[in-house]
């Protein structure tokens, strides 16, 4: 795994913690759209945007040794 992938995996683990910890503690009983609803939506949007930035750095052409 490259260092970029390692950082990406660590970010994924951080998101996993945030995905569970915040809605199940401080936001649990906030009965507003600005509570868990907005939080989960924003977190997912951040992952989608960061994911697109991450894959945008892939080279479009790679050489496969001995492929079909």
């Amino acid at each position: 795994m490259s260092s970029k992938e390692t950082i990406w995996v660590l970010f994924a683990l951080l998101v996993a913690v945030l995905d569970l910890a915040v809605p199940y503690t401080v936001l649990k009983n906030v009965a507003k759209f600005s509570g868990p609803y907005l939080y989960w939506t924003a977190l997912a949007l951040i992952v989608v945007v960061f994911g697109s930035v991450y894959i945008s750095r892939w080279r479009s052409e790679i050489t496969l040794e001995g492929g079909e």
Partner: peptide, 27 residues
């Protein structure tokens, strides 16, 4: 709202898995 959290958790996990494993399966 927990249903939204459950489904978006799936989406976030899939984005991470695709970025890590799609190139591996494809290669």
């Amino acid at each position: 709202v927990t249903s939204l959290g459950f489904e978006l958790t799936y989406l976030m996990a899939t984005v991470f898995l695709l970025t890590l494993f799609a190139p591996r399966f494809w290669i």
